[in-house]
């Protein structure tokens, strides 16, 4: 792969990740984990499957995202399990191994094991932001912050501010 191809594929990875997670590409980049997740996914997936996984990227980010995800990704025997593992990777920093049946059909990788990718990956799991908290053991909110009213849900906070 040339550097140029790599960059296109990486952008596609971010685009697909954004559609699957509900966080935009800039937010995903801001975790500082995008490169290592990209590296991990490349290690786990055979090249042709990775290519297939990223191929809808040019059509994403417009108005048909739900249709594309619901039709091309989630029910697909090959791409569905990959999408579900990738969503969980972004949300928890932990790789969920692909099902046994998937490995038999599409190829096993020795990197396809349950693992928290890195200490940063744990701390940057999107779940902590989604639930209105902070990663346990990191990004502490300060003395007494636990007494305060919890943050509003994202969309609702936006409505209130606008």
């Amino acid at each position: 792969m040339t550097t140029h191809d790599d960059t296109i594929a990486y952008d596609a990875f971010l685009t697909v990740s954004a559609a699957l997670t509900g966080y935009n590409a800039a937010e995903l980049q801001a975790t500082g984990c995008a490169a290592e997740y990209w590296h991990h996914v490349q290690q786990v997936l055979p090249e042709d499957i990775l290519k297939k996984f990223l191929s809808p990227a040019p059509r994403l980010g417009k108005k048909d995202d739900d249709k594309i995800i619901r039709e091309s990704y989630l029910p697909d025997r090959c791409l569905g399990p990959v999408a579900r593992s990738l969503i969980q990777l972004w949300y928890t920093g932990q790789w969920v191994p692909l099902p046994q049946e998937w490995r038999e059909n599409y190829g096993a990788s020795r990197f396809d094991v349950v693992k928290i990718i890195s200490t940063r990956a744990y701390k940057e799991g999107l779940v902590w932001d989604a639930i209105g908290a902070h990663p346990q053991g990191a990004k502490q909110q300060g003395f007494g912050a636990w007494s305060l009213e919890p943050p509003k849900q994202r969309g609702q906070a936006d409505d209130r501010n606008s």
Partner: peptide, 17 residues
């Protein structure tokens, strides 16, 4: 529950909060 994207994010907030 086959959720993804912002619906997943919102449901996480709803349930865990």
């Amino acid at each position: 529950e086959n959720l993804y994207g912002s619906a997943l994010r919102d449901k996480l907030y709803h349930d865990v909060q």
